[in-house]
Design a protein around this nucleic acid. Structure first.
Length: 260
DNA sequence: ATGCCTTGTCGCACAAGA
């Protein structure tokens, strides 16, 4: 089964593009971030017409995540545990039953953290601590478990066209990268790095300054697989061409194939 | 160096993104 993640940068502005990609890519499960919509206004009917079950965790104007699945989504959980005062909609998780057992999927939109020196950066790091704690508990289930989404972390210099330009950015701070490593070192496999060591493997190109035309990209959208999910991995990919479509998101879809 | 674009908003400029 194909499981994908994509930061769509606004579902209202991107609906036609999202529908076109769903029909082309045909993922069994899709995790969407930055829907920028409350649940009531999410265009669920148009997506349901393509055969998907739709679960959303939205808020007004900003953030917001959604889970799509051609099989029923069970045990849906909204919000990342660990801080009841956090009102930002950045996490949704659900379970899908397949012929070969269950797969649980967490869809996340990790805080950007910029600009440094504001409360936004410690919020990012605190959110990552909560994600690490949650992931650690999930690994105890010993089932195929995936954490997909916009991590807003550039893991390594090779994950940026111009790493020297990101020194003062929250996405490339040592603390951000260290916490990402702590997360993976719990026992997750980072799908894209397990599939390819090709240089200039990016998932985001800024709208500004001709970043796409210059391939001035970064790799910040990631798929983490529990050991049980990693054992099933049969391939992965990045739908880079979608960035060249009309009215594109600044991110492109990333996906993994599981033999499940 | 800043803004370069893009999106959403009780719009007509601004915040937020990365």
């Amino acid at each position: 089964m194909k499981i994908a993640t994509w930061n769509i940068n606004g579902v209202k502005a991107r609906l036609d593009t999202v529908l076109a990609w769903l029909q082309e890519a045909e993922p069994e499960i899709a995790c969407l971030q930055e829907i920028k919509s409350v649940d009531e206004n999410f265009p669920r009917e148009a997506i349901e017409e393509l055969g998907y079950n739709v679960k959303t965790h939205g808020q007004k104007s900003f953030n917001g995540v959604a889970l799509l699945s051609n099989r029923p989504l069970e045990d849906v959980q909204r919000g990342l545990p660990g801080d009841d005062s956090d009102e930002q909609a950045r996490f949704i998780e659900g379970t899908v039953s397949t012929d070969n057992g269950v797969v649980r999927v967490g869809c996340l939109y990790l805080p950007n953290g910029n600009p440094l020196g504001t409360e936004k950066f410690p919020y990012k790091l605190g959110w990552m601590d909560r994600l690490i704690a949650h992931a650690k508990r999930r690994l105890d289930d010993e089932i195929p478990y995936l954490l997909l989404g916009d991590y807003n972390v550039i893991p390594d210099p090779m994950d940026a066209k111009n790493p020297e330009n990101w020194g003062n950015d929250a996405l490339f701070q040592p603390e951000s990268r260290q916490k990402f490593r702590t997360l993976t070192h719990l026992g997750f496999t980072e799908a894209v790095r397990a599939c390819t060591d090709a240089p200039e493997t990016f998932t985001f190109w800024d709208y500004q300054a001709g970043a796409w035309q210059k391939n001035n990209g970064i790799r910040i959208d990631h798929i983490l697989l529990s050991p049980q999910a990693s054992d099933l991995m049969a391939g992965c990919g990045i739908d880079k061409h979608v960035r060249g479509w009309e009215k594109p998101s600044d991110h492109v879809p990333v996906w993994v194939n599981l033999a499940a």
